[in-house]
Simulated scan of single mutants.
Amino acid sequence: MLMKTSGAAGRSSLFARLGRVISRSPVGRGWRRSSDLDLVQRSLGFAALGFITLVPLLIIVSSADPEHGRGFAQWLGEGLGVSTASRERVEQLFTRPGQALRTTTVFGIVVLAAFGLAFGVAVQSGYEKVWDLPPARWWARWRHVVWLGVLIGYLFASATITLRPESLAGAFAASLSAVLFFWWSQRILLGGRVRWYALLPGAVATMVGLLGLRVFSLLVYSPLIASNAITYGPVGTVLVIQSWLVGVGLVVFGGALVGRLLHEELPRVVRALKRRGHGADARPEDR
């Protein structure tokens, strides 16, 4: 009986030590910070605001250049990275570019712009939580206007520039522009309170996450759009787009969080490797 008790105590002590090691590791710190960030809830809010603000705004903006632009529906289908058949399902949800401008009112644009600024506030709040910063002052709201304008311009440019993402030059240009945009987005929304070099890993991690989301869309969302369109009609396609926006929110906030972890952990790893290297180079009599 005593041996069983001591064995159970030994296993409990081993698990406790293992738990402390994991908790102190970068993985443990990242898990705690993602819990504090409430990543899933923020991503759901990102998807909701993005769908009711960015989608109508981008439909209007893409309609401004119907001859050279590809239209929002076609751009969204390519952004999802789904098959041709699924893109056709997406295009059926939206009006043609010429019709959007004719049916848009000034009041509607003002309301969409107001909700768009709320979307910028949500993204800024997530970035501030990632870096444990207090909310910005009220007079810094102009940053949301600038950020929203650049975001719409960036997405409009990606819908009108004819570089194909399948080509090497197109993939490089798209990846570089994404890194630059998310790098700048963190800087302006955080009000310059975090240095440029600290924000770069987050921009790169976000870009890599979007590439992974594109592959996931091709494997999962593409057949899901086709099946949901048959089962639920257009509503099924809307549900898939909404879930894709949730994934984009996870990538945006999760990429910033991974970037902070990389910024903090890489110097520690480098210092630890240097100490081990110096210890290995020491002569036996000096040890």
Score class of each variant (00 low, 15 high):
Leu112Thr: 10
Val146Thr: 12
Trp147Phe: 12
Trp183Glu: 01
Phe119Ala: 03
Val130Ala: 05
Val204Pro: 05
Ser177Pro: 01
Glu128Val: 06
Ala136Met: 08
Leu189Ile: 09
Trp147Ala: 06
Ala169Phe: 14
Gly192Cys: 05
Leu190Tyr: 07
Val130Gln: 01
Thr105Asn: 14
Ala136Trp: 01
Val194Ser: 08
Val111Leu: 15
Ser158Ile: 06
Ala174Asn: 13
Ile188Lys: 08
Ser185Val: 01
Phe115Pro: 00
Gly120Lys: 11
Ile152Gln: 00
Gly209Lys: 09
Ala140Ser: 11
Thr160Asp: 12
Phe115Glu: 00
Glu128Lys: 07
Ala114Met: 13
Ile161Thr: 11
Trp184Cys: 03
Ser167Lys: 03
Ser125Phe: 00
Trp139Thr: 14
Gly108Asp: 07
Leu210Ala: 10
Phe172Met: 09
Arg195Phe: 00
Ser125Cys: 00
Arg187Phe: 14
Ile109Pro: 01
Val150Pro: 08
Val110Pro: 02
Tyr127Thr: 14
Ser177Gly: 10
Leu168His: 07
Gly126His: 04
Thr206Leu: 10
Ala157Arg: 11
Arg193Asn: 11
Trp183Phe: 13
Gly170Met: 06
Ile109Ala: 08
Phe181Trp: 10
Ala173Ser: 12
Leu210His: 02
Val179Ala: 02
Arg187Met: 04
Ile109Tyr: 07
Lys129Ile: 00
Ser125Trp: 00
Leu200Gly: 04
Val208Tyr: 09
Gly126Leu: 06
Asp132His: 14
Leu148Gly: 02
Ala205Gly: 03
Arg102Gly: 09
Gly202Trp: 00
Phe119Thr: 07
Phe115Gly: 15
Arg195Leu: 00
Trp138Val: 14
Ala114Ile: 14
Val179Gly: 05
Pro135Ile: 04
Leu163His: 05
Leu199Pro: 09
Ala140Ile: 00
Trp184Lys: 07
Leu190Ile: 09
Gly116Arg: 07
Leu176Gln: 02
Trp142Cys: 05
Gly108Pro: 00
Leu163Thr: 08
Thr162Trp: 04
Val130Thr: 04
Trp183Gly: 09
Leu151Met: 13
Val123Asp: 07
Ser158Gln: 12
Leu210Thr: 05
Gly202Pro: 05
Lys129Gly: 06
Leu168Tyr: 04
